[in-house]
Write a protein that binds this DNA or RNA. Structure first.
Lengths: 112, 112
DNA sequence: TGCGATGTACGATAGCCATCGAACAGCCTG
DNA sequence: CAGGCTGTTCGATGGCTATCGTACATCGCA
C-alpha cells in the first residue's frame, strides 16, 4: 500500500520531546558524535550525506553513530537515492534541552 | 612544614574553567552522580557529608563518584573532622558550561 | 589509648559500548 | 543487467568504567 522504499525501514526518528536526559548525555559524550554535529552545524540542512564526513572510524562504526544521534533526537535523516542526507535538529533539541547543543557546537577543540 | 592535615592530600580540586566538555559530559552521564548533584542542590552549602547521601552503591563506589564530580569542577569539598562536606559549584560551573547544570538539577526523574 | 565512624586506596570483576571486517541490501549509471 | 557506490546489520573483540570487598588512614570521643 505504501510507496515508501524499503530502505526507510531503518529510519526510526525520535522526537526530542521524548528523549530523556540520560540518552542525550550518552549521545553527546562521544567525541566522534560531537564532531558529526559540529560539521552538520556548518552546512545547510540536508546537504551532507553520511559518507561525506571525515571521521576516524570505519563506515560501520560511523553508521552506528548516526543511528545513536538520530535516536537521541539530534538529527533528522532523509533518503535521496542511495544517499542519506542529514539535518541537525537544532531548534527542537534546544527546546527540549536548552543550552546543551550550543555547548557542543561551540566546543573549540576538534580532536576530542 | 605545613600544618595541613594529611587527610587533605586526597583533595585536588579542579577549577571549572579548566574542565573540558568531554570531562563534564562524562561526569554527568552517570545517574548516581546526577542524583548526588540534585541532592546537593536542595541543601545549604557545606551541610552534606558524603556518607549522608542515600545512594544505591557501596561507600567505596560513592567515594569514587565524589572524586569524579570534584575532578569535573562540579563540587568543592572541605574536611570537617572525619567528615567531608560538600558544596555544589553552581555559579562557577554554569559560567563555564551555561545551562548544563540546570538541565541536571531540573531532571524530574529520580531513578536514572 | 582504644573504639567506632567517616572516607580513601587498592585489586579484581563484570557489563557495556565503541570498534572492526564481512556480508547484505538498495540505488544509480554504464 | 553488471558493477560500483552508499549505508545497514551482524558477530566478535577490546577497552573502559562502575562496582565491590577489604584494608587502611584519620578523626572524635569515651
Amino acid at each position: 500500500m505504501t510507496t515508501r522504499p524499503r530502505r526507510a525501514d531503518s529510519l526510526r526518528h525520535t522526537d526530542p520531546v521524548d528523549v530523556r536526559l540520560q540518552e542525550a548525555l550518552d549521545a553527546l559524550a562521544d567525541p566522534v558524535r560531537r564532531s558529526i554535529l559540529r560539521t552538520l552545524a556548518g552546512e545547510p540542512d540536508f546537504t551532507c550525506a553520511c559518507g561525506t564526513f571525515d571521521l576516524p572510524v570505519s563506515k560501520a562504526t560511523a553508521s552506528h553513530h548516526f543511528a545513536v544521534l538520530r535516536a537521541a533526537g539530534l538529527l533528522e535523516q532523509i533518503d535521496q537515492g542511495s544517499r542519506r542526507l542529514n539535518r541537525l535538529r537544532r531548534v527542537e533539541f534546544d527546546a527540549r534541552f536548552p543550552g546543551l547543543l550550543p555547548l557542543v557546537l561551540d566546543e573549540d577543540e576538534p580532536t576530542g
